[in-house]
Design a binder for these strands. Sequence first.
DNA 1: AAAGTACTGTCTACGCTGTAGACCTACAGG
DNA 2: CCTGTAGGTCTACAGCGTAGACAGTACTTT
Lengths: 242, 242
Amino acid sequence: MRIPPPPGRALKEPGAAGEGREGRLTRDAVLAAALEIIDGEGAEALSMRRLARALGRDPMTLYRHAPNKAALLDAVAETVLARLDVERGDPDWAGQLRALARSYRRIALAHPHLVPLLVTRPLATPLALRPRGTLRPLEAVLALLTRAGFSAADALHVYRALFGFLHGHVLNELQELVENPEESDDLLRLGLHRLPIGEFPLLRALAPVLAAYDGAGELERGLDILLAGLAATLGRDAAAGR
Amino acid sequence: MRIPPPPGRALKEPGAAGEGREGRLTRDAVLAAALEIIDGEGAEALSMRRLARALGRDPMTLYRHAPNKAALLDAVAETVLARLDVERGDPDWAGQLRALARSYRRIALAHPHLVPLLVTRPLATPLALRPRGTLRPLEAVLALLTRAGFSAADALHVYRALFGFLHGHVLNELQELVENPEESDDLLRLGLHRLPIGEFPLLRALAPVLAAYDGAGELERGLDILLAGLAATLGRDAAAGR
DNA sequence: AAAGTACTGTCTACGCTGTAGACCTACAGG
DNA sequence: CCTGTAGGTCTACAGCGTAGACAGTACTTT
């Protein structure tokens, strides 16, 4: 009774939202569309149905390219993190880590809605089962540091310190501060006037400082402290400088 | 046609799961039950219906105590963070921050499933609109540090560095490493044998080091570096030591 | 050329989710 | 006593992730 649709396409011929429309749907197209939705509408807006609509396909099609939604999100995070790269042979290990940190920050700022995923997914998946692309930077940093003379254990320690710092930094930098963007006075723009003066005098007084947050600067100053501290703690001479 | 239930209770008289059963449901009871579910079954297991069932009430009852689910989750995070306290008058500011850091870590380890919320919610709500309980530690640290002689701007800087580090640290410490708990060999227990030797030689070799992770130690070493570094950067003499 | 196999796409359906709206009751203050 | 407010419940809606079954396509093997 039921006429099966011409299998390449079926829904929405008539101008509807869907994009590409090439015969086969590729994994990369799925991930790219997912990232676009996350960037544009936030991570909660990404549902399998919403994603399928953006691709002009049936929702169930997505399950041919990912076993479930969590895996799909992991894969999106992976493609983004795969853009990190490390020059393993560079003898200036500190410089190389600085560059890595700056790349990570750049990526986080480019995809702020993805950051909760980036910092949070590793809590749910054992290290060895994580997408390979997310482990590659780790291996690369280990190579960089062992070539520079660190022990393997110290290299791991440095990696953890660096990414701990990085996660903390981007979470800081992406904190929402502004409540009322078009207001010109700092206190009002940040909404700090809502806080009772009796209980939060210092915080209220900080309005101009909060408003002048300098993410790039904070990153660099943090790296100064971290790299110098690590080099000292691990008993190496610091070429850690600027 | 429809007989209304005796309004105090209605569902599940007969031994069903529900707890307390006092006439009025309190906000605290709601939050406590929510935390219990999150701790016991993970944050994704907490639905409004699941929570209502645990309380032996109709799901819609919850909306008398919180405007929506996000606010309810924020409130849970708030009650947990309210347990942090700071001795504002203590002249040993570094010692006080160390204590704060240890408390934060203790809380995070006690409620691991809550950690994604703790680090992630501030991205969604402007500072001034966050639950007051989460701003109180900030105000307290500002008071501590300004009394100890820091400028307000430096005090904020220290606060941010500390909580950035703390967030990064607990995310590190709560990373899932173990794939197969009952296995005795480190490599197999962590599942690292899955990684191709060619691509991940260093990571695979790290199995014993990964298995011996010492969270408390890492926190202290991180604090050593951070507090000394901050004291130096901000040009104060460091009483920052142990 | 035929048959088998794997892959992709679609449809339907199930049990779940958050919450708006309406209603009803109990209690507090006048 | 009446009135207002806050808490509890019920129903209903639109959307969710995904299991299962089926159909067509594109290779591979015979």
